Every structure is written in C-alpha cells, then in structure tokens.
Amino acid sequence: MFDLQSIVRENVWRMKPYASARDEFKGTASVYLDANENNLGSLAGENYNRYPDPHQKVLKSKIAGIKGVKQSQIFLGNGSDEAIDLLFRMVCRPGLDRMLHLPPTYGMYEVSANLNDVQLDAIQLTPDFQLPVAEVLRNVKNTTKIIFICSPNNPTGNSINPESIETILDNFDGLVVLDEAYIDFSETPSWTTRLAEYPNLVVLQTFSKAWGMAGLRLGMAFASEEIIAILDKIKPPYNINEATQELALKALDQDEQLKYMVEEIVQERQMLEAALPTLPIVEKVYPSDANFILVKVKDANALYTYLLDKGIVTRNRSTLAGCERCLRISIGTTEENQQLYQAISEFSN
C-alpha cells in the first residue's frame, strides 16, 4: 500500500519551507516596505517592481476550473522540468535510491536522475512502443522511488495502453509520474480525472505545446493535495514570474481558440500521416497522438542533412534504441508541411 511519508526523504519531511515576505503578510496595504523591492517603480512596466504571488493563487484557480481539479492539487513550475527535478529531490536519496523509465522517451528523466545522483533503470518499450508491464514490475527494487511514463510518448507519439498504466499504479508503492505534455492532441482522457483513485499518481502537463507558450516556460503537475503540499514546500519561493502568470491568465481566457488550433494541428498531422508513406524513401509513419510524427526512412542521416540544406529542421532520432533510421517531425503550418513534403519527395526522386 502506498504511504507517502515512507517514500519522502526524511529531511524533506521534517524541513520548514522558506517564508517569503509575501508569505508572512497576506493582506493588503498602502505602503509595502517588507520585501526590499524598488518602490520607485520598474523599468519593465507597471507592477513588475513587486514580487509575484509565490503561490499563483489566481492562476491556479483558473486552471482548476478548466481541468476539473482542486486548486490544492496543482503545482506550477518553470516548465515541467522543474517539477521533474523536484520530484527527484522529494523522494530520492542521492546515491541510494533508484528510478525507472522506459526508453525511447523524454531525455530529461535521465538527466535529472544523473543530476540528483539517482540510480537509473531503463526498460525498453516493446517494438510497438508499449509498456512491458511484467518486465517493469520484475525490475522494481525496494529502493525504486519513481517510475516515469510518457503518454503520448516522446519521441514515438503514441499513447500508452491505459490498462498497462493501471497495473503499474496498482502494483508499485512509489510515485508513478505520467507525463502528458501532448495530451491535448490525443483523444485519450487525461489521468487528471483519476487522481482520487491513485494517491501515488502524479500527472505532468505543460503550456508549451497545445497552448503555444513554450517561450514562457510554464509547466503543471497534478497530484494529491499531500504531494502538492510537499512540492510547494521545496520549490523556490517565486518560481513563476509575474509576466508569465499574467500571460497565462490571458491565454486561459481563450480556451475556445485552443480547440481550433488543436484541430488544425491534428488535421495537418493526419495529412502527413497519409501522404508521406507514398514516398519511396519512407518506410513507416508511426501512429501519433501528439503534435509530431516519427518517420522511419531508408537513410535518416542523408535525409536530415538534405532537409537542413533546404532550410527545414527536423530532429534526427536514429541514434535512439527502437528509433533507428527515424526522424521526428513536428507538425507545422499548412505551408511548412507542404514544403516538407515537397523536399522529401524531391529527395526520394
């Protein structure tokens, strides 16, 4: 049975969080002389001389209404990468504990494990990029604290079978971190709807993909109130700046426009999924629930270089096990996708 206190590092469980000036004073006043700010103003514009809300209350309230979760079940980070790093710090003792991930997948899980001196167990996805559930559970050790699952997966684009994820959640007493960076492009329901069922579940999402706000670096983690409380305790005090909070609130007021953007990207993805296999160099286009496709070709290095010469940048993933001779191609505008198709067609001929 999952017991949060038993997996959280003892020093983290005991520690007192840093108390900022905005934590100690929660009301309103006419004169603020408590946070060593520049009271003459800001060269960047109005209000930027003040520290931002360290708990992002207004933004979290808006997200909670859209996602159907409690405000206290939301952590906001400087990209999802901050949440990934803090999860390691929360439960993994450096040099003692382990994590498990499933390549080919997002590379920051491994980077964060190495940075935090956490031992890494890598279990390869099956040939159709699904979870080898029995093998995963066989490789869980008593010091394994986190399992990372990316769905839809990067760089393969496919969603992971929900029954496989359920089995991991039911049989692992550590944290199961489900990275849903690309969930908006999928018809699969988000696991945020099942947080009440699984106290060991953490769901990551981001504003970088469907919302089109990669430049702001704003990530989300959804979990039990107890897990979120610990993340809030160990995060930097002002980790989300004022400009990001303001712009994210403006974007959330345009959630109808989000639907149109997602629909257009999915339509363009489907067009490429149908068109590219007709070209002689293309061996396979893998099914995708994301805003990119993984394409196996006869000579990935040559095609990658040819596209660069045409001014088209893709991602060569052919060095990853399971992705041999593959390019990962983001879905662009209609015009960009036509340029891509034309260039690959010319190379094929």
Rank of each mutant, 00 (worst) to 15 (best):
P277I: 00
E273Y: 04
I331S: 09
L327W: 09
S318R: 12
Q270E: 14
L272S: 05
A275N: 03
T278L: 02
L320R: 08
L303S: 13
I293Q: 02
Y306M: 06
R315C: 06
V282M: 07
I331A: 11
D309F: 09
M271L: 06
Y286M: 02
V297E: 01
I293W: 05
N291L: 00
L307V: 10
K296L: 11
I312F: 07
L276Q: 11
M271Y: 12
D289C: 10
G322N: 05
D299N: 15
N301F: 03
K310Q: 15
Q270I: 00
Q267T: 12
D299P: 04
R269Q: 03
R325H: 13
V266H: 05
D309Q: 14
I265V: 15
Y304K: 01
Y306I: 08
Q267A: 15
R317S: 13
T278W: 00
Y286P: 00
P287K: 15
L308E: 08
V282F: 04
P280A: 15
E268V: 03
S318G: 14
C326R: 03
V297C: 08
I331N: 08
I265K: 12
N301E: 14
E273M: 15
V282P: 08
L272R: 01
P277G: 05
Q267D: 12
E263I: 02
D309R: 13
E283V: 01
E273T: 12
C326T: 08
V266D: 03
M271F: 12
L303M: 14
L279F: 05
K296F: 07
E268H: 11
P287W: 01
A290F: 06
D289E: 01
C326K: 07
D289P: 07
I293R: 01
M271E: 11
S288L: 01
C326V: 03
I281S: 13
V266R: 14
A321P: 12
R315N: 12
A302W: 01
P277H: 05
I331Q: 06
I329M: 14
Y286V: 02
D289S: 13
F292T: 01
L327T: 00
C326P: 10
E268I: 03
Y286I: 04
V266P: 06
Y304L: 03
L307W: 07
S318C: 09
Q267N: 13
E324H: 09
Y306G: 07
V266T: 09
